[in-house]
Design a protein around this nucleic acid. Structure first.
Length: 219
DNA sequence: AACGGCGGCAACCGCAAAAGG
DNA sequence: ACCTTTTGCGGTTGCCGCCGT
């Protein structure tokens, strides 16, 4: 619990990563795979904390990270997923192959929010901007920064036709053993939100037989 | 050319959950 | 069951480049 101790140790670099640091990190992960972030910096000869290494790898160095502008289709998908999930960037990111949670979060805050506001849409509630909506959004925000399943989820879910079954992104299939150990399982939208016992769960008795898989994929 | 404002993005921070002993 | 360590997430910060004055 509490703050990660690795960041409190001295003698670590901060700020922008240098090319040499990137190359060291890439070379190390190529050989040893992802994971063990706590011991990685020392093993790789990096003066960074493990968290910093992890972030750099996931958000920038990973070979499957898609660079460049977001397409309109991606924007629309982000907006729709955000209307369902709220600020669950990591879950949203699983639906956009090659995009990271950090990238999506930045894109939301810098582009999409403004876009919605200019259209008169409240980015919190995804409804029209007016006083009541504002109050409602504050209330929603307060009650739940986690993904509360709203009344209209079912309706939106159908409208979206997003194949809202969380499966391992194809880009992760090349990932290190920790991920490869998990069979490619498809779970329903409700399980993906951690609502494993929901009456609406549709994966009982089908492919979602592993509770552990549900839990690990929904977090 | 110099300056300040602004937007975009990489990186950091603090927290909580998960994992392990 | 409890404590410590590790991992992952979301919010926030700060740097850097662009643009207007």
């Amino acid at each position: 619990m509490g703050r990660s101790p690795c960041c409190e140790k001295g003698h670590t670099n901060k700020g922008a990563w240098t090319r040499q640091e990137d190359e060291r990190l890439i070379a190390y992960i190529r050989v040893h795979g992802e994971g063990c972030w706590g011991s990685l910096p020392k093993a790789a000869g990096l003066l960074r904390c493990g968290k910093s290494c992890r972030l750099r790898w996931i958000n920038y160095l990973r070979p499957d990270v898609k660079r460049g502008n977001f397409t309109d289709e991606e924007d629309q998908l982000i907006i729709k997923l955000h209307s369902l999930l709220g600020n669950k960037w990591s879950i949203i990111a699983t639906r956009l192959p090659g995009r990271t949670d950090n990238e999506i979060k930045n894109h939301w805050n810098t582009h999409i929010k403004r876009k919605l506001l200019s259209r008169g849409i409240d980015p919190l509630t995804h409804g029209p901007i007016h006083a009541q909506a504002a109050i409602h959004s504050i209330e929603l925000d307060r009650v739940s920064s986690t993904a509360v399943l709203r009344e209209d989820v079912r309706e939106k879910h159908q409208e979206l036709n997003l194949e809202l079954q969380i499966s391992l992104p194809s880009t992760h299939l090349d990932s290190p053993p920790t991920l490869q150990k998990i069979d490619r399982q498809v779970i329903c939208f409700y399980c993906s939100l951690g609502l494993r016992n929901s009456k609406d769960c549709t994966c009982e008795g089908t492919s979602c037989r592993s509770i552990k898989a549900c839990q690990s994929l929904s977090t």
